[in-house]
Computed example of a mutant assay.
Amino acid sequence: MKRVYVLSVAVILTATLLAQSPDRMSYQAVIRDASNKLVTNTVVAMQISILQDSTSGTSVYVETQTPTTNANGLVSIELGGGTVISGNFSTINWAKGPYFVKTETDPDGATGGTSYTITGISQLLSVPYALYAANAGTATGGGNFAHYIGEQFGGGVIFHLWKDNAGVEHGLIVALTDQSTSQVWSNVSSTEIGASGQSSWAGLSNSNAIVGQAGHTSSAAKLCLDLESNGQSDWYLPGILELKTLYNNYYTVARAFSQIPGATQLTSTYYWSSSEGDSFYSLCCDFGGGLVSLDRKDLPFYVRAVRAF
């Protein structure tokens, strides 16, 4: 059986409102075969499950889809828009997370998807506001949080909040200014780091893996790790899910930036994430429209650091 590898890029793009109820959100993944080659321009069959609480948690929703990969091996689908196997996407209580997306893929989707291979599980770090609000009331100030999205705190502005299983509050903070407007992902641009640098959400560990790679001298990650700003020194280059979460909540963050002396807005252009794709490519996000893409590591893009609490 042919093995397929799906790069962990569970990217939440938007919530779609249908009949007054939000019931879809977008997801992207890069498909590779057993030889680590991109599966391009091919119909693949996918079974997607939403798991609650852990990577081995209960499936609250399962559906199948048969998307077609593009020239870069990327598939883009809308969760909630496939053939339902079990559950009801519109009734998922997003406040009762954490939630994880499990993907099972058959590269020969034209035959109906009979040989699924479990290829990856990624945590949903951010749920679009409309989906969350449908069951939880508010995505920023509710749930007895001490902080709120858009708050100036911890050296920057909060753009994401969550509580762990013990009820302890955590968040992500974006720096007040860009660290570069023209920085390559890394000077090591043709050698793969591997799993330690390919997490979609663990930006700090990705960043440490980037600067620890043999031959490394400069990178977007190093700019962030070396940053000391507003009394904080634990900044890092965000993983692609962290960066996409920032984009999803940027309206509120931008309003906060406008009230902070010295803060600068993010530009409508590409920003590097710390999530590696392969030997030559890594993931970035276009803040002009939210598109996530794989681009060459030697291209100069913008850089904005984040930190966690």
Results as ranks from 00 to 15, higher is better:
S273M: 02
V253M: 00
P261T: 13
V253W: 00
I240W: 04
S233F: 01
Q232V: 12
N249C: 01
G239P: 04
E276V: 10
L243E: 07
P238R: 07
P261Q: 08
Y250A: 02
E242M: 09
Y250P: 03
S279F: 13
F257S: 02
F257D: 01
Y271F: 06
D278F: 08
S275K: 10
W272N: 04
S273C: 03
S268R: 12
F257W: 06
A256Q: 10
P261E: 09
D278V: 11
F280R: 14
I240L: 10
S274Q: 08
L237I: 11
S274H: 05
T267L: 15
I260K: 06
L266D: 01
G277L: 11
Y281D: 13
T269I: 03
F280C: 11
Q265A: 12
S279K: 14
N248R: 13
L266G: 03
P238F: 06
Y247A: 08
T267G: 12
S279M: 09
K244I: 13
T264H: 09
L237H: 03
Y270N: 14
I260A: 08
E242A: 13
A254M: 10
W272E: 01
R255V: 14
T245V: 08
L266I: 00
F257E: 05
Q232C: 05
Q265T: 07
S274P: 04
S233C: 07
Y270P: 03
Q232F: 07
T267F: 14
W235K: 01
L237S: 08
